[in-house]
Design a protein around this nucleic acid. Sequence first.
DNA 1: TTTAACTTTCAAAAAGTTTTGAAACTTTGG
DNA 2: CCAAAGTTTCAAAACTTTTTGAAAGTTAAA
Lengths: 164, 164
Amino acid sequence: MEYQNAKHQFIQAWGTLGSSWGINKAMAQIHALLLISPDPLTADEIMEELQMSRGNVNMNVRALMDWGIVQKESKVGERKDFFRADKDVWELARQVSRERRRREIEPIIKVLNQVQKVEGSGKDVEEFKQITGELKDFSHKVDGVLDKFVKSDQNWFLKLLMKL
Amino acid sequence: MEYQNAKHQFIQAWGTLGSSWGINKAMAQIHALLLISPDPLTADEIMEELQMSRGNVNMNVRALMDWGIVQKESKVGERKDFFRADKDVWELARQVSRERRRREIEPIIKVLNQVQKVEGSGKDVEEFKQITGELKDFSHKVDGVLDKFVKSDQNWFLKLLMKL
DNA sequence: TTTAACTTTCAAAAAGTTTTGAAACTTTGG
DNA sequence: CCAAAGTTTCAAAACTTTTTGAAAGTTAAA
């Protein structure tokens, strides 16, 4: 397989994967491009390579910086901003876990705590308390695992894999 | 908090969570409703409760059955189909993991294997091989963990939690 | 076989999301 | 301070996904 080809396929696939993860395609594609780029790129280079508008690149590069997986850099003697993706896959996974934990697990635990305060009795209410209680327990467990993961180092994970 | 209130809040929250997981809102809401319902419900009851069209209910109930987390039932002396959600949160988590593994991890591993076949040399190609290689390794590890999880029982998970 | 109850399909409409591009804004070197 | 280079914003357009509802299909009791 030829390089240009492999590159496009990878960027395409990363974009699709992103979509099914609730990350928009442009954001995922920019990330893919920066990941495989040996040197940081300017907004213009990203626009050119991925054929997207300046606004779109700007918006999504900022989203990637929010996630903490892309950094802005400047070069001496250059006016333009350069963007670089974190190349450490382990670190990437941790950042993504951290964000998803914050955006998804935390809100659901909050709601489950709220609705557990339901009053009254009867079959419906009992069933409701039962299932939301189980979901809450489960969510707490997942939260705990993610927390551990986010705070851990790669070595911990590898040791864990051994145990499985 | 009053029951009707808690119920709506829970269904709403589950719908939102679904969206950020690439599961459509209607599908997640139907699932939430069935989860907390002590008895199986008919399509008409779901339509009424969630104020959505017959087509939408039908489509998403089938999607839930595809995921293996909702079952169709029939009652003697009743023409209508009844739908029931799996009440076991553990089982639910396993089914969801299985589906996401199949839909997301497997395709990306396939692409990574493909693009690793890139030919030629140079800084770009080396960087490309390096990062796609690392992603592949990582994906395989995640795949392994999920596989273990999907095939495990709750007890295994609890023991694992102890070790953390 | 007929008919009524129920389920499924699918094309069109609505809703939601992403992308564009031009204008406004900011920064920097001279 | 000015002008040039670069960045950000945002309303409108394009695109995608979801939802609707009516029509077609299926099933089962009489």
